[in-house]
């Protein structure tokens, strides 16, 4: 069991959880992830390690409610049944910052993709690197951890689809204007965003790293559910990734594979909502 220190809603349907999990973070390097289980019979949910306090053994997570299992996670108050990590490979720049000295690097976050972007930018700033960040959301009310990211980013750009904050438009609009300033782009967010960024950077021949978020079960290389096609070859996001060369990933396939459980997920969520409503009516 893992003690939950905090589990609060940051903006609508988006939560921050702080949990005691010293084993999972002691050796963690930004880019790695954990898998959590709310209860013994819960689904295993992969989440990025978005921040940590190694001295206190605290793991920070950000997640969005997208279905029954994340809904269940949002109801957790005291403890999590399971936390396993760190899993996956660290981000290649964070793993070896010296290799990237003098490189001009831009991070791009889409939506809750800011959660995995933040620890990398923070870590690289600690190594003395200046990192620019482009952070895009649909609308201003979806911005999260704004203060934290501004503290660590060198130059900060915002975009919103509806123009309620920052530049109106997409992250690629801002990137295109500034692309000549960068040697490396790291893009993390919805698959469709990572695809657009990678198409743009390929045209300009700028190295691009993306972080894939496929369906996963064990997270240790055992099941192959998370396989992505990279350069025409199947790679397991859990142990070969989650980060890959954006110019080599088959994003269209990744998008289709995200739909595998769509019907089942919907059904489970409907069941859960009914159950929750019943509980409420019992209480009422």
């Amino acid at each position: 069991m893992f003690k939950v220190i905090q589990n609060k809603e940051l903006v609508k349907n988006c939560y921050e959880m702080i949990v005691e999990a010293p084993m999972a973070i002691q050796k963690a390097i930004p880019g790695q992830f954990v898998i959590v289980m709310a209860k013994e019979d819960s689904e295993r949910i992969p989440l990025t390690i978005y921040d940590y306090d190694k001295e206190k053994g605290l793991l920070y997570l950000i997640y969005q409610i997208v279905g029954a299992s994340t809904e269940e996670l949002s109801k957790v108050k005291e403890e999590l049944f399971g936390v396993v990590g760190p899993l996956g490979k660290p981000n290649e720049i964070c793993k070896d910052p010296n290799e990237y000295e003098g490189k001009r690097i831009c991070y791009i976050a889409g939506g809750v993709g800011i959660a995995p972007v933040y620890p990398q930018v923070k870590y690289l700033k600690e190594q003395g690197m200046d990192i620019d960040v482009i952070y895009g959301v649909r609308s201003a009310n979806q911005l999260i951890i704004q203060k934290k990211i501004e503290e660590v980013a060198h130059q900060m750009y915002y975009t919103t689809d509806d123009g309620t904050f920052g530049t109106k438009g997409f992250v690629t609009d801002v990137l295109e204007k500034n692309i000549k300033n960068y040697d490396i782009v790291v893009a993390i967010g919805p698959v469709i965003m990572m695809k657009s960024v990678s198409e743009l950077t390929k045209k300009h021949n700028v190295k691009t790293i993306v972080s894939m978020n496929p369906i996963m079960v064990d997270g240790s290389g055992m099941c192959g559910a998370c396989r992505c096609e990279v350069e025409g070859k199947p790679k397991f996001a859990c142990i070969d990734g989650p980060e890959f060369d954006g110019h080599k990933v088959d994003f269209d396939l990744a998008l289709k594979r995200l739909n595998i459980y769509k019907e089942e997920e919907k059904e489970k969520w409907e069941d859960m909502k009914t159950l929750l409503q019943e509980e409420v009516s019992y209480e009422g």
Binding site: D41, S42, E43, R44, A68, S69, E72, V217, D218, M222, C223, G224, A225, I260, Y261, E264, E265, K268
Partner: peptide, 22 residues
């Protein structure tokens, strides 16, 4: 491995399972 893990470890053989089996 994936099918068996979902069915056995994650309890997918029961209708009440929170982990889906496609």
């Amino acid at each position: 491995n994936e099918i068996l893990t979902r069915i056995n470890l994650m309890g997918g053989f029961q209708k009440s399972s929170k982990t889906p089996v496609k």
